[in-house]
Design a protein around this nucleic acid. Structure first.
Length: 730
DNA sequence: GTGACATGCAAGGCC
DNA sequence: GCCTTGCATGTCACC
């Protein structure tokens, strides 16, 4: 079944009215939930409950009940978590807005996805079934209960099939109580949400929509809802007359927009009941007011919601990274009281087009600022119905990393859901960082400028503060991890990647995984940023200067040709580069093996500690070309020791035209901790034969030995060094 | 003698 | 048959 779920925030009446009248989008987007979350549901109740679930019956039942707008319900305290449907999915009843569907089935369908678009005005506050708030605590419980207490107010026009009462008309009341909150239904074992989801899919079918519309015209059924409080029925009856008009209006609208609007669309639209009430009063109250209000709502849906859907859909491809970034931002919810934050934490900016209920199939409790503890949906990915209505890409973790050269990413995304982009284990904070909980579409993709103003502008300061906290946190975390001797490489990778992005975006940090499906490694920021200038800026980029001279017993501290920064290649020497190691390339290093043996001591000293022989992926930016190479840093067991290698170097060597006798230098960026690599060609002085590939293995061996004695890992000062750009330096 | 490292080479996978 | 991966071994510098 499809339901147009119009849940309006309670809250300031004037504001609400204004929203509905002119700034409907903003108003609807607002999800402060100060009011108990009364909602008006334009619900389409798909007929027989069982049938609906079993076969995806899309029968639409138009139910319009003016009584929906009850205004006398006591105002409940604000519950930030109650806001958007997004929260509803994971949060207890209050958050969830509430569905008021006439019957459990209808409610379920409407809430979870049922298709039909129906407008059911539902009051909040009915006593929720205790089990509905199984995840709620504290405020949540209260709010939920309050909300459900009035749930009976819904006056859905049900199909003759007894929508929601599939298991017996008398069950409707109970069903209401039990499933008064759509989101709660998700966790309710009575409901097979999967079936509902599948139905939703069906509702996407235009044909079904047509069918449902036709049915609606034929059957406008008065809901058989009964309520705990008998008054509800009375209210329903008294409003039946008005329902006809409202139903007519809605049906008319539905017919006019059936090509563009789907049940899914309508289902996502929520307006709090209080908002409806206040708006109706502003409009003069009574039947006409309701009708006018309904028109306004529908107009808004048509002009804003649907339009946004079309526009946003085109940008879905870009959503995922942003979504993930935000979703995993531990600070998004840092301030429980700050409802002005941008989504996902900011639920006040709920947009019906971008936020949808998320499932809570298996819920892990996470601390929620608003509710104390909220159930966080766990993997696997949610059913399609829970995806953002705008067809934005799923928010679950991206597919497994692909090997090969990594695309540059502005925001490295940790493939492992265990960590957020800041390297923080997602389970660490009390904030809900579950990517499913807050499907988010970046503000930049929201076409509704008013919404942007509402969400972004209003929270600009808050965002700045949050970002400042993030930076502080990252800085602290970097130091902490570094002190731990890189024991958490993956986390650091994420952190540094993020930091680098902010500090030196031109470096194009690569953060996706490297070959083998392991993590790209972004090194730690050195705890004590070395003040040593990089070798390229000095005359002696020896191990001594790197502070590791003693680490290379074989290495002679001799002047080493200092490659001059190749300005033609756009590389500018930066004082924050720290020399880590260099390696004179051997034949085996430049061969087709695609691996370079690294000096053990330097590797152990300056490169991340390797726990496993498979090592880690390192993003190495080629200083000469600014290209980032995804290399693997690993080791081989060698007797009782280790051999450290840098793999996936074939392309790098080839690109730089490196040959035996040339050398590479590895730096780390002190600022962001990333690694940089530079290949330096060594050209023999005039008159000497340039290093030519040995004609034979024996020759190679002799030459290697000769070089070994002379150069070892320190290029001799006597040789002419040429940068990859053929810039020669003595 | 020991450790580091260059590389030979075997095993397995892939075309 | 070629390539990749990974281990084993030989060589050499250093202690």
């Amino acid at each position: 079944m499809k339901s147009l779920h119009v849940a309006a925030n309670g809250g300031d009446l004037a504001e609400d009215c204004g929203i509905l009248a002119g700034d409907a989008d903003e108003a609807i987007l607002m999800d402060g939930m100060d009011d108990v979350g009364r909602e008006i549901w334009l619900n389409d109740h798909g007929g027989d409950h069982s049938h609906h679930h079993a076969h995806g019956d899309d029968d639409l039942i138009v139910h319009h009940d003016p009584s929906l707008f009850y205004g006398d319900l006591p105002t409940l305290p604000d519950f930030p978590c109650m806001s958007s449907s997004s929260s509803s999915s994971t949060s207890p009843a209050p958050v969830n807005a509430i569905v008021s569907s006439a019957s459990s089935s209808s409610a379920a369908s409407s809430s979870t996805s049922s298709a039909a678009s129906w407008a059911i005005l539902r009051s909040d506050g009915e006593d929720p079934a205790p089990n509905q708030n199984q995840y709620g605590s504290g405020k949540c419980d209260e709010s939920s209960g309050a909300l459900q207490s009035t749930a009976s107010m819904e006056i859905p026009l049900e199909t003759s099939q007894g929508f929601g009462c599939g298991e017996g008309g008398g069950d409707c009341i109970d069903m209401m109580e039990t499933f008064g909150y759509m989101d709660l239904l998700d966790s309710n074992e009575f409901f097979d949400t999967s079936a509902i989801f599948s139905q939703d899919d069906d509702t996407q079918n235009p044909n079904l929509m047509d069918q449902t519309l036709e049915r609606q015209q034929d059957q406008v059924v008065v809901p058989m809802l009964e309520n705990n409080s008998g008054g509800d029925m009375q209210m329903m009856n008294s409003s039946l007359e008005q329902d006809d008009d409202l139903a007519t209006v809605f049906l008319e609208w539905l017919k006019n927009n059936k090509e563009t609007v789907s049940a899914e669309d309508l289902r996502k639209v929520k307006i709090k009941k209080a908002t409806i009430e206040s708006a109706a009063r502003r409009l003069g109250g009574g039947k006409e007011a309701m009708k006018q209000l309904l028109k306004l709502i529908l107009e808004w849906v048509q002009t804003n919601h649907l339009q946004r859907r079309r526009t946003v859909t085109t940008t879905n491809n870009n959503n995922l990274s942003y979504q993930q970034s935000f979703q995993q931002d531990p600070f998004q919810n840092a301030n429980p009281n700050n409802n002005n934050l941008i989504p996902p934490s900011d639920q006040t900016c709920f947009s019906p087009s971008t936020w949808v209920p998320t499932p809570q199939p298996q819920q892990a409790f996470v601390s929620d600022p608003g509710f104390g503890y909220m159930p966080a949906p766990s993997y696997p990915p949610p059913p399609p119905e829970y995806l953002p209505i705008l067809e934005s890409p799923p928010s679950w973790p991206p597919p497994p990393p692909q090997s090969g050269p990594m695309p540059h990413q502005q925001f490295p995304m940790p493939p492992n859901p265990q960590y957020n982009q800041f390297g923080e284990p997602t389970g660490f904070t009390g904030y809900n960082m579950n990517p499913y909980q807050y499907p988010y579409i970046p503000p930049g993709q929201m076409r509704d400028q008013r919404l942007l103003r509402l969400c972004s502008s209003a929270t600009k300061e808050a965002r700045k503060k949050r970002m400042a906290r993030q930076r502080r946190f990252l800085s602290h975390h970097h130091r902490h991890n570094n002190n731990n001797n890189n024991s958490t490489n993956q986390q650091n990778q994420n952190q540094v990647g993020e930091t680098c992005t902010a500090v030196a975006p031109q470096l194009n940090p690569v953060a996706t995984t490297a070959t083998g499906g392991t993590w790209m490694y972004w090194p730690n920021v050195p705890s004590v940023p070395p003040q040593l200038p990089p070798p390229m800026e000095t005359q002696l980029p020896t191990m001594d200067r790197a502070g590791s001279a003693s680490a290379m017993p074989r290495q002679q501290v001799v002047p080493v040709p200092v490659p001059v920064p190749d300005r033609r290649q756009g590389w500018k020497p930066e004082k924050n580069l720290r020399f880590l190691l260099q390696k004179v390339l051997k034949q085996s290093d430049v061969g087709n093996l695609g691996r370079i043996v690294l000096p053990k001591k330097e590797a152990e000293t300056h490169l991340p500690e390797l726990e496993a022989r498979d090592g880690i992926s390192l993003a190495m930016e080629d200083i000469g070309t600014s290209r980032v190479w995804n290399m693997r840093y690993r080791f081989w067991p060698n007797n009782k020791s280790r051999m450290y290698l840098l793999e996936n170097t074939g392309d790098f060597v080839k690109t730089n035209g490196l040959q035996e006798g040339d050398f590479i230098v590895i730096y780390s960026d002190v600022k962001c901790g990333k690694y940089l690599i530079r290949g330096v060609k060594v050209r023999q002085p005039t008159g000497q034969k340039q290093e030519a590939p040995p004609s034979s293995a024996a020759a190679t061996k002799r030459q290697n030995k000769s070089q070994r004695n002379v150069n070892n890992n320190s290029p001799s000062a006597s040789v002419v060094v040429a940068s990859p750009a053929s810039q020669t330096v003595k």
